[in-house]
Amino acid sequence: MATTIFLEAHYFGEDHEELRLPCEAVAATLDGLIVAGVEARHLRALKWRPDYLSYWADGQLLRLAVGPWVALDALTVRFTLR
C-alpha cells in the first residue's frame, strides 16, 4: 500500500523547507527508519538536510526527528533517528 513521507527542515526565525514524497512503506528498526519505494535521487537533489520525517502508521501521524540518511539502493533509504 503506497503512502507518503513528509520531510521538514527548520532554520532560524521563520525559515523552513518541506517536501512530500511518495513511498511504498516506512518501517522503524533499531538502526532508524527504513523508507522503501522512495527514489533516492530526490533526496540527493535536496540542498538541505531534513530535521523531521512524518508518516502515517496505523491511523496515527508520527513525526520523528531524523539525522543523516543513506541510500541502501535506488528505491530504499535509511534515516538515522535523533
Rank of each mutant, 00 (worst) to 15 (best):
A2K: 10
A2T: 12
I5P: 00
A9E: 07
A9R: 07
A9L: 05
Y11T: 01
Y11E: 01
F12T: 01
G13K: 04
G13V: 06
H16M: 11
H16D: 06
H16L: 12
H16A: 13
H16N: 07
E17A: 11
E18H: 08
L19G: 11
L19K: 03
P22G: 05
P22D: 09
C23Y: 13
C23R: 15
E24H: 15
V26D: 06
A28L: 03
A28N: 02
T29V: 12
T29K: 04
T29A: 12
D31P: 11
G32A: 05
L33Y: 09
I34R: 06
I34D: 15
V35K: 05
A36D: 15
G37P: 01
E39S: 02
E39Y: 00
A40R: 05
A40K: 09
R41V: 04
H42F: 13
H42R: 13
L43P: 06
L43M: 08
R44M: 01
R44Y: 03
A45Y: 01
L46K: 00
P50Y: 07
Y52V: 10
Y52W: 10
Y52R: 09
W56L: 09
A57M: 09
A57L: 14
A57D: 12
D58V: 10
D58L: 07
G59W: 02
G59F: 01
G59R: 11
Q60K: 08
L61N: 13
L62V: 15
L62A: 12
R63Q: 03
L64Y: 02
A65I: 08
A65R: 13
A65H: 12
V66C: 03
G67R: 02
P68K: 10
W69Q: 11
A71V: 11
L72D: 15
L72N: 15
D73H: 07
D73Q: 11
L75C: 10
R78E: 14
R78L: 15
F79K: 04
F79P: 14
L81D: 08
L81G: 04
R82L: 02
R82Y: 03
